[in-house]
């Protein structure tokens, strides 16, 4: 048992950098793409936004596992032949972008109309209003939801093991398969993911408190 735990921890240490890299990459790309999609859906006329809306709904309406399969195994049929790691990053980024875009869209909608009217009466142009008023006000409103989604994405990286991405779950499950010590390996996996999500939530809470203090200064 001790040996299995030891092997699991070593495998976890080997898989952790890949998990972190995919997670950070997926969150970063997802936030940028999600922001752009959310902004276009909020500002552009409805006729221009429906393809994006359809894309977002397609991602939100299907399991992440199915999306990974479709991209990795179905992609080659339409000329998209990606390595497991690249496919994993693309899938995670697209999945994140769909959800992040809804958070940003809600954030744009949450900026009180009166604050925008005040900007208009004082002569701020549309771009100035977006840059100086909407984005900062929105950033505060969306931060908790962004953090929540980022934490969810940490856990979703485990699904990438299905398409043989050598991340945390894939490595530790390898130990389980070789030793049949599934309980020990699963316990290690659970503890490592829990530690990751707790650390992220803790850092985010600190950031939120800092921002709240600055707002109330």
């Amino acid at each position: 048992m001790i040996q299995a735990l030891n092997d699991s921890l070593i495998a976890a240490a080997q898989g952790l950098p890949m998990t972190l890299a995919l997670w950070l990459g997926g969150v970063a790309i997802g936030i940028v793409a999600g922001f752009l999609i959310g902004a276009v859906r909020f500002f552009a006329p409805l006729a221009l936004t429906w393809p994006l809306a359809a894309l977002v709904e397609a991602v939100r309406g299907t399991p992440f596992l199915v999306q990974c399969f479709l991209l990795y195994f179905g992609g080659p049929f339409i000329g998209i032949d990606l390595s497991p790691v690249v496919a994993g990053l693309v899938a995670l980024s697209a999945y994140g972008a769909a959800y992040f875009s809804e958070v940003f869209r809600a954030g744009f909608m949450a900026v009180p109309k009166g604050q925008l009217e005040a900007a208009r009466m004082l002569g701020l142009s549309r771009p100035q209003t977006v840059l100086r008023i909407m984005l900062p006000v929105m950033a505060l409103a969306v931060l908790p939801s962004l953090v929540n989604l980022a934490v969810i994405l940490i856990k979703e990286t485990a699904v990438l093991s299905i398409i043989t991405v050598p991340e945390l779950t894939f490595r530790v499950q390898g130990v389980g398969s070789a030793t049949f010590a599934f309980a020990e390996t699963t316990l290690v996996l659970a503890l490592v993911y829990w530690a990751l999500t707790e650390a992220t939530s803790w850092a985010a809470r600190g950031l939120e408190r800092r921002i709240e203090r600055r707002m109330a200064a």
């Binding site: 009166g114 604050q115 009217e117 005040a118 900007a119 009466m121 002569g123 701020l124």
Partner: peptide, 16 residues
């Protein structure tokens, strides 16, 4: 709006 001719103070303050 915004040409400087008219200023408006709102019921809900609308500070940023």
């Amino acid at each position: 709006p915004g040409d400087g001719a008219i200023g408006m103070v709102f019921q809900q303050f609308n500070l940023w």
